Computed example of a mutant assay.
Amino acid sequence: MIEFTRLTKRYRGATAVDGLTCTVRPGRVTGFLGPNGAGKSTTLRMLLGLSRPSSGSATVGGRRYPGLPDPLRRLGALLEATPAHPERTARQHLRALAQTHGLPDARVGQVLALAGLGPAADRRAGGFSLGMRQRLGIAGALLGDPAAVVLDEPSNGLDPDGMRWLRLLLRELAAQGRTVLVSSHLLSEMALTAQHLLVIGRGRLLADAPIAELTAANGSLEPAYLELTRDAVEFGAPR
């Protein structure tokens, strides 16, 4: 499980994440939603030890990520779509990552195939499209066959076929009993992919519920989301 306990982050008097407490459970895809500036990326950065909380904690299986002895086997993550040196091929990038973390070389070919990058494995990453860089980043996140997967806006740059691939992949990872947390602004994709939603606004938790429960009164995710976040949008259209 991934757990956030009273997680708080302040920057020079401004609060980006405000006492966030929730649990991301295995066996389902959990969508992580919120307006721009809601604190989603800051939360994920604290989970991965890239930013220090002002107070509270973010843990994976009860432990902070930086203290894990085998982090890629516990949690695989993608926070941006530029994961490789542009002069390295996709295969070289993943091999270097595998060697650094003591992972078998055979796993490189497996995740390249899983990400649909087999034909492009020996091309330099600098020539990849955004969608291909996303696939490579996801391949890297899965390299350690992790029990938990965290992806921040993984559908950026993907074409319709890539969106379908990602949707099926996330569902399969959850069906295998993994913990899957996906941040996205694409409500239509979340409606098709996620079973559970965490919604935050201005750093605070607004909803922690099954998607079916959130959409029951509104018929679809978009009106439910807009109602939840109506007072948490910093820059929005007039109502």
Rank of each mutant, 00 (worst) to 15 (best):
I2H: 12
T5F: 01
T5G: 06
R6K: 08
T8G: 05
R10W: 08
R10N: 12
Y11G: 11
Y11R: 11
G13E: 09
A14Y: 14
T15G: 04
A16W: 01
T23A: 14
V29G: 10
V29E: 12
V29L: 03
T30G: 14
G31Q: 10
G31A: 15
G31P: 11
L33C: 02
G34I: 10
G34V: 10
G34R: 08
G37E: 09
G37N: 07
A38Y: 08
A38D: 07
A38N: 06
G39H: 05
T43Y: 01
L47Y: 10
G49I: 09
R52L: 13
R52E: 15
P53H: 10
S55R: 15
G56V: 07
G56R: 02
G61S: 13
G61C: 14
R63T: 14
R64D: 13
P66V: 14
P69L: 11
D70S: 15
D70N: 13
P71Y: 12
P71H: 11
P71G: 12
R73K: 14
R73Y: 06
L75R: 12
E80L: 09
P83K: 07
A84N: 05
E87K: 12
R88P: 00
T89V: 01
T89E: 05
Q92F: 01
H93Q: 06
A96C: 09
A96P: 03
Q99P: 04
L103H: 04
L103M: 05
P104D: 04
R107F: 01
G109Q: 03
G109F: 01
L114C: 05
A115R: 04
G118P: 06
P119F: 07
A120T: 07
R123E: 13
A125H: 02
A125K: 03
G126H: 07
G127F: 11
F128Q: 08
S129E: 01
G131S: 09
R133C: 12
Q134N: 08
R135A: 00
I138E: 08
I138R: 06
A139I: 05
G140Y: 02
A141K: 07
L142Y: 06
L142I: 04
L143C: 02
P146L: 09
A147W: 08
A148D: 12
V150I: 13
D152C: 10
E153W: 10
P154M: 11
N156L: 12
N156G: 06
N156K: 04
L158C: 02
D159T: 04
L168F: 01
L169M: 10
R171S: 08
E172I: 03
E172D: 15
R178T: 06
R178E: 05
R178I: 02
L181H: 14
L181M: 15
L181D: 15
V182I: 14
V182D: 11
S183G: 14
S184E: 08
S184M: 06
S184A: 09
L187K: 01
E189S: 05
A191V: 05
T193V: 11
A194I: 08
I200H: 04
I200R: 03
R202Y: 07
R202M: 05
L205A: 00
L205Q: 03
A207V: 10
A207M: 08
D208M: 06
D208A: 06
D208Q: 00
P210H: 02
I211R: 14
E213K: 07
L214G: 05
A216H: 03
A216I: 01
A217I: 00
L221H: 02
A224W: 06
L226F: 15
A232D: 13
F235E: 14
F235Y: 14
P238N: 07
P238W: 03
